[in-house]
């Protein structure tokens, strides 16, 4: 699904990712953990194609294609989705209209037919209900006046509606209470399938109790310092990043 090889990336001329190599197979869930400033969010923005995140060397091959040659919107249409740490507020654009526009734009890019308005509404209502998102929220301006938890649930709603092949969750657990965390994790777990891969970026092991990963990686100073199974996350929680990284 995704092959990252010796990736180097800079932000504002400063190198943040320094030789990162990571391979994610179809249907797998990979967790990337690491302290602040280790390059977690930079990795997610590089994958999503945000401007200002400059890849200086290395390669990213996604489903056999050079991902770095694609614009952000093309990557989305090819099935990459980034659930953002800080979802952006967009006054004047309702969640409903935004998502219908996005679903149709992706369909168009893939040469698929546009979704019928009634069918879309039916589907989004069903998905929203599972995430405890009420109708009123769908009709409000995107993320405007939403609580932290509502914003994150809205990200998962988008994830479910867009049905990507590779979903990147950038600290989706931050700012969530335990109920909201469970709701979000259930939403993600419902989406797990042999065709869909996940890259879960988090500070804490807590989220990984609910979304159980196949592989855990520790990111330190812009590269992967250690990889292991779900147990590695528990070791980190118990011993702290420093000891685990130094033991590597």
């Amino acid at each position: 699904m995704l092959e990252i090889k010796d990736l180097h990336a800079t932000v504002d001329g400063k190198e943040i990712v320094k030789g990162l190599t990571l391979s994610i197979g179809a249907g797998q869930v990979h967790a990337v953990m690491g302290p602040n400033g280790s390059g977690k969010s930079t990795l997610s923005y590089v994958l999503a194609g945000r401007e200002g995140y400059q890849v200086t060397s290395g390669s990213i091959i996604y489903r056999g294609r050079d991902l770095l040659a694609l614009k952000a919107e093309e990557r989305a249409a090819q099935g990459i989705f980034l659930a953002m740490q800080y979802p952006v507020e967009i006054p004047g654009v309702t969640t409903l209209n935004f998502l219908r526009t996005a679903v149709n734009a992706q369909a168009k890019a893939r040469g698929e037919p546009q979704i019928d308005a009634v069918a879309f509404l039916k589907r989004i209502r069903a998905v929203a209900q599972n995430l405890s998102i009420n109708e009123d929220m769908l009709k409000r301006s995107l993320n405007v006046g939403f609580s932290g938890g509502e914003k994150k649930r809205n990200e998962i709603l988008q994830l479910a509606m867009l049905g990507p092949s590779l979903a990147i969750l950038d600290e989706t657990d931050s700012g969530l209470d335990i109920d909201a965390l469970k709701l979000v994790a259930d939403g993600v777990n419902d989406m797990r399938s042999p065709e869909r891969s996940f890259l879960v970026i988090t500070h804490y092991q807590r989220l990984l109790d609910y979304i159980v990963p196949d592989h855990v990686h520790v990111l330190s100073a812009g590269r992967i310092a250690r990889s292991g199974g779900p147990d590695l996350a528990r070791d980190l929680e118990a011993q702290g990043y420093e000891r685990v990284v130094n033991a590597a």
């Binding site: 952000a72 989305a76 952006v88 998502l99 734009a105």
Partner: peptide, 14 residues
């Protein structure tokens, strides 16, 4: 710019 990226990251062309 952030709003623009958000929309594009969902597949809406620039």
């Amino acid at each position: 710019g952030e709003q623009l990226f958000y929309l594009r990251s969902r597949g809406i062309p620039e």
